[in-house]
Simulated scan of single mutants.
Amino acid sequence: MKKLVFDVGASAIKYALMDNDAHIYEKGKEVTPHDHFEHFLTILQTIYEKYQNEIDGMALSLPGTIDSELGQIYAPGGLLYNENINLVNEMHRFTQLPIAIENDGKSAALAEVWKGHLKDCQNGIVIVVGSGLGGGIIKDCQLWKGEHLFAGEFSYIYQGEGTSFMENAWAVKGSTTALIMDVARRKNLEMSQLDGYRIFGLIEQLDQDACAALQTLAQNLATGIYNLQCILDPQKILIGGGISQQPILIEKIQEELNKIYENIPFDIPHAYIENCCYYNDSNLIGALYRFLMMYPSE
């Protein structure tokens, strides 16, 4: 039997029919609702009913502060209707199959531990660069969630001066949204006129504004990565998210890290960075791995 795995994002609910080795047999997606929880639950149920005779379990990757053992979502991330919802219990209204849920950034980290570039690492970090900055911390080959399930919520790291969160949060300085905002400001455009694809197209054309914005983004990411290396000393730091498919991003981050290390008058360990092994499928693979850890006999 196979598993039905969901990757719930701000704009789309992606889903896949997968076996226990993460082979994908079929994919699809639906628009993520933003009105109320019952609408969201109905979409999950409709997709489930399409595959119910082929599966023996379900797994979900979602934004938010999540207790996987309890199936509970505390802080909901961008999907506000999920606040203080026990999603597993709610889904058991239409099925009694075993269900596992995990935070989206932590799912990406689990994918790398299971089958990706952290497979042979004791300690590592995954930073997912998207509308914000998510990710996961791997300690002794295990996902480390912290005392309040908050470890790896990199968006909230301060990177600047003063008390204004919206000016100093790492998400505001080091995310894809930050890159779009910077290019829009430099070109006097609305943010809606830009996206990552268009910006990297401009970078390929050596557009001065886009290249300068990328350099600023790389500086901000490198500063945070340097600090994480000093705090946690991982073997590797992986960069994920759609933007990580652009080789120039990793190159620019490495350049900025080199500048930092060149100015330090001590011999300290350097951060080793590379892109994640998986891109659009990371959260699906990681959510499946969470399921297999919770239900090893399924």
Rank of each mutant, 00 (worst) to 15 (best):
I66V: 14
E90V: 02
E251N: 11
A12V: 01
G135E: 12
P296E: 05
K236I: 04
L228Q: 14
A109C: 15
K14G: 07
D281V: 03
I264F: 10
T46G: 04
K173Y: 08
I55A: 12
A59D: 06
A22L: 00
A59K: 03
N263T: 08
G134I: 04
I231Y: 13
I239T: 07
G160Q: 07
Y25R: 00
L4E: 04
M191R: 15
N168D: 08
K259P: 00
Y295D: 09
K3A: 13
M293G: 10
Q72D: 15
A212W: 10
H34L: 03
D233N: 14
L44W: 02
D56G: 06
A111K: 07
H36W: 07
Y197P: 00
M181T: 09
L79F: 10
Y261A: 11
M58A: 12
G174K: 08
I137H: 06
E161Q: 02
L149S: 01
G136N: 10
M1R: 05
F165I: 12
I239P: 10
K173E: 06
V128Q: 06
F291L: 11
L194F: 00
P234C: 01
H270D: 03
L206S: 14
G64E: 05
I66C: 06
Y15I: 04
M294S: 14
K2I: 00
L79Q: 06
E204H: 03
N227T: 12
A218P: 10
K50Y: 09
G28F: 07
I137P: 02
I264Q: 05
H148T: 06
Y51D: 13
A16T: 01
G196M: 01
I285H: 13
P98R: 04
K27R: 15
E69A: 10
P247C: 02
S61P: 04
W114H: 06
I24H: 11
T65M: 11
I273R: 08
Y81I: 06
P234Q: 05
E49H: 14
S155N: 12
D67A: 09
L87R: 05
Q52T: 12
L228W: 12
R185E: 14
Q96M: 01
S155C: 09
D120L: 11
K29H: 13
P234A: 09
D233Q: 09
Q229C: 08
Y289E: 13
Q159E: 02
E49P: 01
E69N: 11
V129C: 08
E30V: 02
L249N: 07
E49S: 12
V31D: 05
E38H: 14
A75S: 12
Y289C: 02
M18E: 06
Q219H: 13
K27Q: 13
G162A: 02
F291Y: 13
